[in-house]
Design a protein around this nucleic acid. Sequence first.
RNA 1: GACCCAUUCGUCUAGCGGUUAGGACACAUCCCUUUCACGGAUGCGACACGAGUUCGAUUCUCGUAUGGGUCGCCA
Length: 439
Amino acid sequence: MSTPVRVRFAPSPTGYLHVGGARTALFNWLYARNRGGKFILRIEDTDEARNTETAMQAILDGLRWLGLDWDEGPEVGGEFGPYFQSKRQSIYDAYFAKLEAAGRTYTEENGAVRFKFSREPIMVADLVCGDVHFASTEEPDMTIRRPDGSYIFHFVNVVDDIEMKISHVIRGEDHLSNTWKHIDLMHALGSHPPRYAHIPLILNPGGSKMSKRDEGAAIDSYQKSGFLPDAVFNYLCLLGWTPRSEKEKIDRQELVTLFDAADIHSSNARFDMAKCTWFNAQYLRELAPEALLGAASPFLQSAGIDTGSNTHAAVAVHSVKEKISLLSEIPAWAHYFFREDYPFEEEVITKLKAKTENKALLQAVLDHLPSISDWSESGFTIGIESVAAENKVKPGSILPLLRFALSGQNRGPNVATIAHLIGQESTANRIQRVLTKVL
RNA sequence: GACCCAUUCGUCUAGCGGUUAGGACACAUCCCUUUCACGGAUGCGACACGAGUUCGAUUCUCGUAUGGGUCGCCA
């Protein structure tokens, strides 16, 4: 009972990191961290024709982005390496010889080799699905080696799990039906099978398997659309697993503490982008101004916004934090803090032109501006209140006009906040410009 | 076709024989409010179906239906 926990994520570098694969990695990682075990990354690149270096980097990048660090594997090494199946041929040859010696193989006419099943009933004692019984009598013997001497997934997967002393195999439920074959192979090789935990699949909103066309299928798309890794991490955890906890927003450390493979569900879950986005909004709101600016800067840059010289940049970006759910929304909500040539939304122009007194009110504000000596948010507000009183209107009649003048749009943070951040001079210039050119 | 897994609001789920079947997302309404949001409140909304076991089934058993998966010299 004291065997150390060693789990692995074993992707095949044929494309990108899929959301289902990412969650498999996540559960393995959580299990290892919870039990004080090792999380191993093994690259299953036995199919030369389909594997690429860029695909492998995409997988590594995706795991790193999610904060899933591996204890053994590519770039970090480990005592059971190499961690690329393409570099373990001699190990496989040795195990293959063992199987041959045991009389459990036979060769096809063209040179491919099959593993002779025991044809005994086999039970998979699954941590998630319970005891699953297989008769193992109908299926044809499985091919384990190609005519060219390279090995098939089922064989190398099993050999590596033995060699790397994997204690628990946590993988997608799509592997459950083949697990008896792996156990049969393990027995033939004289090894004890690891514990298995087959986790439910992530389905698209339509209820079928997530494909690369589905929104949210590729992990790098989350980064591109402005998700925070912690939010995606949290959401993915809750797809197929529920902690004994009332809340849903749970930070990484607490998830590690709470995680237990026994609580993993056995039915598939559909992916819901709206809820994932909600999680992101929650995590976004926790970011301090500087952290938010850091996270948002790639998006600001790609929108052509330069925040470098603006000393209020962090505060400005922070002021729209509660308006948005994704980092990618920030440029549209905060661009006017960083440039004077911001656009004016057409429908707002039309609305303002409809009332002739609007122009006079803006002029009154402009005239009053120089007499505001305290350009703090409260100082500005007092100034606006006095303009309102002089013109016998409520501040609520003036503020929307100002918002439009200062930002070009009809939504955003407090007008006082905007005015304070862009400064007194820019405020006057912006009102002046609207008066002469827009209205 | 054979085998395997599953089935609670639209979605994610709680429930582990007796509950007004709870929460979250989404949606709707109201409150707050200079806007947009946040937040708060309320509403909408589910045990796939049929037998059996039981004093009593969402919960246990068996069927049926539906969904998903596996049966590759892909992984």
